[in-house]
């Protein structure tokens, strides 16, 4: 065993990212949309860590910390919005909140 090629790590990140993206585009339930976003952020973080370990540099992990912070902030705000959505429409269907049209 000669270690893992960097491309494999990045491909794993791409697969996770594509899955998250597909979920984002497919789902109408806001909970699932938020979770898809988490998956996407997580895959981006994975790519950073892969880079960091491949080049043996700690900067990528510092970036990973930033991504985690961002994910936490995003999750808290997103969930608060979701609660509001549920209170107003009694549903988590995002299409119910599509009143902002051109």
């Amino acid at each position: 065993m000669n270690g893992i090629p960097m491309e494999h790590g990045l491909i794993l990140a791409s697969v996770l990212f594509s899955l998250g993206l597909a979920g984002l585009m497919l789902r109408r339930n806001m909970l699932f949309v938020l979770m898809s976003l988490e998956v996407m952020l997580n895959s981006a973080a994975l790519a950073f860590v892969v880079g960091s370990t491949a080049w043996n540099q700690p900067d990528g992990q510092a970036m990973f910390l930033l991504v985690i912070t961002l994910a936490a902030a995003e999750a808290s705000v997103g969930l608060a919005l979701m609660i509001q959505l549920y209170q107003r429409f009694h549903s988590l269907n995002l299409d119910a909140a599509s009143r902002m049209r051109g």
């Binding site: 270690g3 893992i4 090629p5 960097m6 790590g9 370990t53 491949a54 080049w55 043996n56 992990q61």
Partner: peptide, 12 residues
Amino acid sequence: GSVDRVIEGELL
């Protein structure tokens, strides 16, 4: 890509 880096699993 032609980076050809291999991750050895060294501890950071």
